[in-house]
Amino acid sequence: MTRSTRSLQDRLDAEGVICAEGYLFELERRGYVQAGPFVPEVVLDHPEAVQGLHREFAHAGSDVILAFTYYGHREKMRLVGKEHLLEPLNREALKLAIEVAEEFGCLVAGNVCNTNHWSPDDPQSQRDVRAMYEEQIGWAAEAGVDYIVSETNDYYGETATALEVIKAHGLPAVVTLSAHRDPTLWDGVPVIEAAKRLEQAGADVVGLNCMRGPATILSLVQELRQAVSCHIAALPVTYRTDAEHPTFQSLEDAACGCIPGDRPFPTALDPFTCNRYELGAFARDCWDLGLRYIGVCCGGAPHHVRAMAEAWGRQPAAGRYAPDMSRHAFFGTAGSSSSDTTERNRAHAGEL
């Protein structure tokens, strides 16, 4: 198979786009990324692990291979003392993504994110951030990506800067904002207003990613659908957030007294993980709202992506292995040698 010849816009206007993010958390769980710094050194240390996850997401139904350059910007690399690896890391991540996209016929997206360096009151920090975006987006453009994802944005000014650089390189832009407890960006612009401004500035897709799970991101997506006319993106974390705990950073686990700092985020979120059916339901809700760009962020895994693809009526390669409980040893019915055996097995399994 060859890489997709259809554009992002073509897919958005037809069947829609599913984009798997979530590389940082999934690779941390697998032992390839250090929680805390969260720098994607795995791209250089274990490229086979990155490509393996790319393939798993594509197999599950992702239309996009997202280059794993999240937090691969100059500020993060400087903080961990590895600024000299900045360009090799970005170029390798792009190469890995393109190779897998060619295997599966996917789109390739470059990736930039929040820098944690932007200050609304410091022009030098703003120049620094623009230079960081120029580097990463420039390398992505040279590699020939189909579009750029600018994600997990906390400041409107920083986000607008990323969009300016993306458009200057002539690339389509998917721009997603982070809605914390207060759905207002840190420079005072409400996320809905920010999305409207970004649409007017030329973003092809605007939306939300990270921070909120399916249950607490959906109401904001509904508001956003009424506010903009462009395509909307929704990529929640795959955790059970609620009205009292609208973000995964705010989740509390009273049942466990051994969590460092008594805070589940980011390494003890397991009890809050959404199941595949919740992500499938979220995908259906998004479709009914008219959204045609969805995916998963932190916590997302291939089985979540498959559920979303199937909820949109697709048959991803991984669908071959969709559950068939009729064949289960204890709970199944297909092929049982006798009803007595089936009932006995169910009783042992605790169903009766």
Rank of each mutant, 00 (worst) to 15 (best):
S338L: 03
G300H: 03
E343R: 15
R284V: 03
M211T: 15
L218K: 10
V80Y: 04
W118K: 05
E83Y: 00
L269E: 03
Q226H: 15
F331E: 14
E151S: 09
H169Q: 11
V33M: 10
R29L: 14
P172F: 06
E310N: 06
D204L: 06
A311H: 04
A311E: 02
H180Y: 15
C106I: 03
A173T: 09
G170Q: 14
V165P: 06
A173G: 14
A143N: 09
Q51M: 15
V43M: 04
L352I: 07
E135R: 10
P323G: 01
A201I: 01
A283N: 02
V296N: 13
W312E: 04
G207S: 08
S62V: 05
F265T: 07
R197L: 15
A109V: 03
A349K: 05
M211Y: 13
P88V: 04
L66Y: 05
R11A: 10
Q51W: 02
R11G: 03
E99T: 13
E56P: 06
D253T: 07
P246I: 04
H73F: 07
A173W: 03
F38Y: 15
T5V: 14
L163Q: 05
Y321W: 13
P120E: 09
P123N: 15
L218S: 12
A49Y: 00
D146M: 08
P88F: 01
S229W: 06
G22C: 11
G313E: 08
D182Q: 14
G300L: 01
E15R: 15
G295Q: 01
H348K: 13
L185E: 11
G332T: 07
A317S: 05
Q124E: 14
M1E: 10
S125L: 05
Q136Y: 02
E135P: 00
H245M: 13
V17C: 05
D122M: 07
H59I: 04
N116T: 07
A20D: 02
F330T: 10
L27N: 06
I98M: 13
D242F: 02
P214D: 11
D45H: 09
F330K: 05
Q126M: 13
V175H: 03
P88H: 03
P260C: 07
V296F: 05
N153A: 12
A179P: 08
T267C: 12
E92G: 01
E310L: 04
A281V: 10
T238A: 11
D288W: 00
V191Q: 05
R29I: 01
E343W: 09
F331H: 10
G144F: 06
V17R: 04
